[in-house]
């Protein structure tokens, strides 16, 4: 099993969600995140004062999938989240040792 984590622009969440649902992914975890990448944040002018935004608001999306689905799910997210502009985010995949569904106690692939 793999854990796919994607950092995306907040407004892309609906597109990503729809694409994942279409692919057959039934669950995901979304949280608010802030950070920066190569572009190192950017400057803003707010109420007349310029200030540097170090941490840009993003959404962090986590999906657990079977090994065989991992790369295609990452592709689905990529296609849906891509705008081609600075700050589109990142996607990464890490192996997962075990998964347990709390309600039933099912383990492994059953629990996904």
């Amino acid at each position: 099993m793999k854990l796919i984590t994607a950092i995306i622009k907040p407004h892309q969440i609906d597109a990503v969600k729809e694409a994942l649902e279409a692919y057959g992914i039934s669950g995901m975890t979304v949280s608010e995140a802030s950070g920066y990448g190569r572009q190192r944040g950017h400057s803003e002018v707010y109420r007349g004062a310029e200030y540097t935004v170090d941490f840009v608001p993003k959404l962090r999306l986590e999906v657990l999938v079977d090994d065989m689905d991992a790369s295609s799910v990452a592709d689905v997210i990529l296609k849906a989240a891509q705008t081609g502009r600075i700050g589109d985010g990142k996607i990464w995949t890490v192996p997962v040792e075990d998964v347990v569904r709390v309600r039933t106690g099912e383990r492994g692939s059953e629990a996904i």
Partner: peptide
């Protein structure tokens, strides 16, 4: 009203201004 939401609103307001 988290920092996250505040940052998005401020950013957007600046773009509209």
């Amino acid at each position: 009203w988290t920092d996250w939401r505040a940052a998005l609103l401020n950013q957007f307001a600046a773009a509209v201004r």
